[in-house]
Design a protein around this nucleic acid. Structure first.
Lengths: 346, 346
DNA sequence: CGTTAGCACTCCCTTTGCAAGAGTGCTAAC
DNA sequence: GTTAGCACTCTTGCAAAGGGAGTGCTAACG
């Protein structure tokens, strides 16, 4: 775990990273000795820094600048050096106060969570709406718009609402629709979407065996509704915030990041990856792998309600980020959102 | 209409504005004589330019730069000089092809329209979803989530779907809800929301006189649903596009614009203002009035379906914008969206 | 033998000065 | 009325110079 760094090296590495997080400037040996009490002269610190650079934890932008942490440096810092403090009671209270508006719909709640994450961190908040896949069916309604055009409204246990338009091959009357809905609601209510999909496949297989025409149609309808992935939307709040960071004074970097925000697919992918994992996840954008968010970190955590709905939220900011503040914020927000979802759905 | 400018001044003003729109650089007298055939020497052009500057149509960034159009200059250009060509059949076809995906829900259609506006203009597309106020009621459904918690799904004639959560003072059973919905649907279907609101006020007034408890509740429910403004959302698509424009190499301007995009309220206000007007509207952001979008222009047009739903769409870009291309694009898009809405709602 | 002071060196950043270029406004001639 | 000529202004680019910050090395110190 300590990766062969002795106590002194670790201490100095930590000092450098924390100073760098604080100022954003490369940090030199003298600055360290001034700001931290390590009982060494700048020259000694320099020796250690040279070692750390050789080991790949630090880098220097040019010969006569100070050092900045590398990706590897950050990783080590996050794994071994950083101790995340818990939020104090006051801080918790302060965050909780932002969520006071009750009776929010799920979508609004999550958007709000993104906004709050963004403003309290002064970075960009990012919330992935739960995939319907991961939720529990409550009810669906069919509303006939035209003989062959049906609006389907779909509600999950946790209060997610999705609607979509489907077109049928044959006209269906309102009455038939109503019956179909009743049948489906009675059959599927309380089941996970995954299970329902499987059930549908089975039912479809013996479709011809169904003597009841209506049931057949109901099954067909529901399969149409569920065939596309619902949900999985991403809210990004506070885009402008992150651009205040000095690392984005480079206008091209800024544009690249904005494009990535607009695209969203990259973020969806990343968020989805961390979905399963318990606790706070930190993803550091490397120039090689995810160049769009080079220089950025994603701090995320999954939230979930008791009903099993699962989504991810977090913040995205420059890798040079006060993790000691951000990590508990994200973690607490995730649990808060989870419990609000539980309450709201009652 | 010609505001006292003689033919020559107008010709030169047009030449300057068009050159400026094209290059983005202040344009000097020699450049004019080279690129346009006006049979005058640079010196003569200079005289005219000095006059135009005096009259407020042009300005010079500094003594020895060329001239750039002022706001007033642009206005005159738009009113008197610019002749908007119609789109060719091919161009229409080309745009139409982007809208091929059928069966889109209204929301998705409008978002898509924003995206298409953005990519074809290479500026930022902006679409205001119709205010529910302006639409015609089709149907609502109540879905009971908990004894006192009801999800209301609201559908307009043009296929807009809104849902919201309401809480009631007293528990209502599913059966009662169903009856209430039936009653409201029967009573209000086909009426404009405005009318319905009035009706509700009247009904509420004689609430006590209603012996039927259920009807009273139904009215109460519907008033709760309609009390907040629904709709009026704004989609902004292609933010990153506009930032490619050289006028936004100034990073602060860029940030200001992004903040305005995030805020949206300013845009909602502007779009709402132009809602009533027929045809393409152009709004030029002035440093005095709407400083957030200083240097930007909004080119908008209302779209409407036969059912009376009305929204606004358009693009936002730098004031230095090829209006001859953008205006017909916006205009055609508005009519296209209108007619798609008509078809989709059938 | 680890630590430290001293010092030369490197590199960035800002300032300064200068020259080139573009465009104007004015005046005088056509 | 139009145009050529010219002095003037202002920006832009470039190069040189100076200051500042920080390093790496070496030699001395405890």
């Amino acid at each position: 775990m300590n990766e062969g760094l002795n106590e002194r090296s670790r201490q100095i590495l930590e000092a450098i990273i924390e100073d760098y997080i604080h100022t954003g400037e490369p940090v030199g040996s003298r600055a360290i000795t001034r700001r931290h009490d390590i009982g060494l002269s700048p020259a000694s610190v320099r020796n250690v820094m040279a070692d750390l650079e050789e080991l790949g934890y630090l880098a220097s932008p040019h010969t006569s600048a100070g050092r900045i942490p590398t990706e590897k440096g950050y990783r080590f810092y996050l794994n071994c050096l950083l101790q995340v403090r818990e939020l104090s009671r006051q801080e918790r209270l302060w965050i909780r106060q932002h969520y006071q508006r009750r009776g929010l719909q799920m979508e609004e709640l999550l958007r709000e969570a993104g906004r709050i994450l963004s403003t309290t961190s002064s970075y960009t908040g990012i919330v992935m709406v739960p995939k319907l896949e991961s939720s529990v069916f409550r009810r669906m309604e069919f509303i006939s718009l035209a003989p062959r055009r049906i609006m389907v409204v779909f509600i999950s246990q946790s209060g997610m609402v999705e609607h979509r338009l489907i077109e049928t091959d044959m006209p269906i009357t309102e009455g038939e629709l109503q019956e179909a809905a009743n049948y489906l609601n009675a059959t599927f209510s309380g089941l996970g979407i995954q299970d329902i999909k499987q059930r549908i496949v089975i039912e479809m297989a013996r479709e011809k065996a169904l003597y009841d025409d209506l049931l057949r149609r109901a099954i067909l309808l529901s399969s149409k509704v569920l065939e596309d992935d619902l949900g999985g939307q991403v809210f990004i709040e506070g885009t402008a915030n992150i651009l205040e960071q000095p690392e984005f004074s480079d206008i091209n970097r800024m544009k690249r990041l904005l494009r990535a925000f607009e695209q969203k697919s990259l973020l969806v992918e990343l968020l989805h990856q961390t979905q399963q994992v318990e606790g706070v996840q930190i993803f550091i954008g490397s120039p090689s792998e995810y160049s769009e968010i080079e220089g950025c970190s994603l701090v995320t955590a999954s939230y979930s309600s008791r009903r099993g709905t699962v989504g991810t939220l977090g913040i995205i900011g420059p890798t040079r980020m006060p993790y000691a503040m951000v990590i508990p914020l994200v973690s607490y927000t995730a649990s808060l959102v989870g419990s609000i979802l539980d309450n709201e759905a009652e």
